[in-house]
């Protein structure tokens, strides 16, 4: 465990909590893509099945349980508790265009052709593109609430920090996991455009809105 990995995990947690709190405090999930949230919940559930098979550390297991519970709670808030505020008309990304190719790829390119390993690979690939419905929704409505942009910032920061963590681990431990690294790179790149807008607009106190 190095500082970049820890900081990455923490910003991931911060992102998840920001989103939960935003929905809970405003009693509304307007502007949030329920589809992205379902994808993230699927990512956690398929990846953390190893909670039942191996024990790595108390930290590892507790974080996994927190991530899974929070992501399922978010889906519940969007689709059940605050469903009336869910902006389904703008959440029109076709998720099957992500899930089907990602599913196929995880069968073809993996470390080991076993059910657990294929599910892990599926979750890694799926996570890298799971934010697309949310970004698509923002591009459709042309704007995002500032708190939503903070959520996206921490989510992107998490992946960026993981990239540094992998460079670190490669140099100091000789460890590298090509599947995670390539997927992590893709994931980080998807946030670049957003990062640019975040720095040039949101951090200067303006609302994130896209030119018409």
């Amino acid at each position: 465990m190095n500082i970049f990995r820890l900081a990455g995990d923490v910003s991931h947690l911060v992102a998840i909590i920001i989103l939960l709190l935003k929905i809970w405090k405003t009693r509304s999930c307007a502007g949030i893509s329920g589809k992205s949230q379902i994808l993230f919940a699927s990512v956690f559930v398929t990846r953390y099945l190893d909670l039942f098979t191996i024990f790595i550390s108390l930290y590892n297991s507790s974080m996994k349980i927190i991530y899974i519970s929070c992501s399922i709670a978010t889906v519940y808030l969007v689709y059940f508790k605050f469903k009336a505020t869910y902006d389904g008309n703008h959440d029109t990304f076709r998720v099957e265009f992500l899930v089907v190719p990602v599913g196929g790829l995880s069968f073809l390119v993996n470390h080991d052709f076993s059910p657990m390993e294929i599910l892990w690979t599926f979750s890694i690939y799926l996570e890298s593109v799971a934010i697309l419905p949310q970004l698509f929704m923002i591009s459709k409505t042309g704007e995002a609430e500032t708190i939503t942009t903070h959520y996206l910032f921490f989510l992107g920061l998490y992946r960026g920090l993981y990239l540094i963590n992998w460079i670190w681990r490669y140099y100091f431990e000789g460890f590298f996991d090509l599947i995670a690294i390539v997927a992590g790179l893709v994931q980080t790149v998807l946030y670049c455009d957003f990062f640019y807008l975040y720095v040039t607009k949101v951090l200067k106190g303006k609302k994130l809105s896209l030119p018409a």
Binding site: R5, I54, N60
Partner: peptide, 10 residues
């Protein structure tokens, strides 16, 4: 090799 398959990251 055994460690290779253990995913210790989140």
């Amino acid at each position: 090799p055994e460690g290779r398959k253990m995913h210790d990251e989140l």
